[in-house]
Amino acid sequence: MRIKIFFIGLLLHLCVSAVAQKASQFKGSLIYTLGPDTSSVGNFELNGNKFMLTVVSMSPYVNVSKLKGAFFPDGQLMYVEGNNYNPARGKDSLLYAYKLNYDKDTTIIETRSKNRISTHKYPVKIMVANNLGGDALVFMPALLANFAPKRVGDSVISSHIVFNSARKFIIKKTGDRKLLLGSSVMGMFTIFLDKNGRMQSVDGIGTSFNIKGTAGKYLNIDSVIASNVKQQQLHPRLAIINKLDSVKTTINAAAVKIIYSRPSVRDRVIFGEVVPWNRIWRTGADAATKISLSKPLYFNGKELPAGAYSIFTIPTQNGWTLIFNKQANIWGTEHNADYDFLKVPMLIQALNEPVELLTFTIDAADNNGGVISVSWDKLKASVSFTTVP
């Protein structure tokens, strides 16, 4: 009888192990779009705790990142190695190679190019890092979804290496088939899962990337690379650049300057999609838009003291709210409401002609005052100020 029980137990153990192993063996593809354009395509594969990624970026030229590695049981990175290259350049196409190892409570990342080797050490375990190859960062969610918590409301906390420092990285289960995943710099991606817990689609609107993704079957990635290299040669793409710009003026001895990055419309639906309604927006691209004042300004009688502030807005269909935040030098997704200093309403108006590049203006007005405006696509939002109480 005991022998029979033993073999039944062994059989159950093997069945459970087989199910667990099957649950962590899968592969597929992910296609990201930026507005009407495909921005990157990649294959992902997980076999136990080992993984592989091949990511093909499309703009402005075809760039490929290949990496392989292994996770700890909780989804944090044990080791990674890979490289990044330009397939159109032949034998000289390698741009850089990289390695990650976790050893003695330290994550070590080494990056090698033709002329340089750099090594950085971080006293944490991590799940993602910006310096592990091109767009590979935004393909990691397809693998990390496998390590999400099981209960709705629970979270997994790790780190994201960016700007040569560790930021908190989180995977939170917000619904039976829904996750939030990201960091303050990366932004929070919404992950939609299928019935098996695999990524089905991803919404990255409002993140640093403003992309959407759809998962599918494993692709012949060599064919994807070859066809895109050919397409690049026939029809070269323009780089997607958020132009850094500034505007400044002096009104009644008060110098006012705004520094910002200018995203373009690029045939996208901006307000309500790229810029969701009723949500904090960096009001620009990349680093947070920054305003500097040599003297105080007054908005509806409320003082904004001299100094530097980051600018955020909350666009709604009926009007906007302009926010001045005391953290002046931050990335655009790192808004922290604890540092909000002043909030003022903005008036909106429809434009007859669309504005392709987001544009700030500062115009003088009567009574020692002025108007700050931001225009993009077919909307303009404005707020008046004075230089005296």
Rank of each mutant, 00 (worst) to 15 (best):
N164P: 11
A23R: 15
F324C: 07
I117A: 12
I259Q: 09
N352I: 08
I117C: 08
L219M: 10
V138P: 05
I311R: 00
L358Q: 02
L358E: 06
E356V: 05
L219A: 04
T289D: 02
R151H: 15
A253P: 03
A70I: 04
P60D: 08
R151Q: 15
V162G: 02
R268G: 12
G206C: 01
L238A: 14
N83L: 14
N367E: 15
D176C: 13
S65R: 05
K22A: 15
D203K: 00
Q327R: 11
L53C: 06
S227F: 04
M346H: 07
L11Q: 02
D154R: 08
S227T: 13
L219G: 04
A287L: 10
L293K: 03
S246I: 09
W277N: 00
P123F: 00
I311K: 01
L137D: 14
E356R: 04
N318W: 09
N164D: 15
F71D: 05
F271D: 13
P263M: 06
V64S: 01
Q21L: 15
V56C: 08
A142G: 07
N83E: 15
I291E: 01
I270L: 04
G272F: 03
T107Q: 03
F169W: 06
Y85R: 05
F163V: 14
K230D: 14
I211A: 08
S183C: 11
D135M: 13
T214D: 05
K22Q: 15
I3P: 00
F189D: 15
A328E: 09
R167S: 13
I258C: 04
I157V: 14
L304R: 03
A145P: 02
N352Y: 07
M186S: 12
M58G: 07
D363Q: 10
F209M: 13
S292E: 10
G35T: 08
A239C: 12
I108F: 00
L304S: 08
I270S: 03
G42I: 05
K91W: 09
N164C: 14
P315E: 05
T249S: 07
N220Q: 09
F72T: 06
F341W: 07
T321C: 01
K150W: 07
D105I: 01
I311S: 01
T119C: 11
V202W: 00
L137N: 13
N318F: 13
I323Y: 01
A288E: 05
M140W: 06
T289L: 03
T119F: 03
S201Q: 11
I117K: 07
F6A: 11
K121T: 09
P345Q: 01
S165C: 11
F385D: 12
P73M: 08
T283G: 06
K343A: 12
K243D: 14
I241V: 11
V265N: 01
